[in-house]
């Protein structure tokens, strides 16, 4: 069960931002910067319960979140 999701504004496109903002079942925090600049530059990521998660796409990260629920 996921407790908290954080994402960087610079790491998401507007569609992903909307999808993350629409997640009702889990608290989501948008940050201007999560100080994960290297990971942010490398590709999509989320911080889930304090832990870094990366994937090829944000869709894959969001799908993985659903599987955790």
């Amino acid at each position: 069960m996921v407790g908290h999701v954080e994402y960087c504004l610079d790491n998401v496109d507007s569609a992903t931002r909307r999808r993350l903002g629409g997640l009702d079942e889990v608290p989501v925090t948008e940050q201007r910067c999560l100080q994960r600049c290297g990971d942010c530059y490398s590709g999509p990521f989320l911080v889930v319960d304090g832990e870094l998660r990366t994937a090829e796409t944000h869709g894959a990260l969001l799908n993985a979140l659903r599987e955790d629920e």
Binding site: H4, E6, P27, T29, Q31, C33, L34, Q35, V47, G50
Partner: peptide, 12 residues
Amino acid sequence: PFYGRVDEGQSE
């Protein structure tokens, strides 16, 4: 410490 709330997330 990471920036953020002291009571949640990676900055806890």
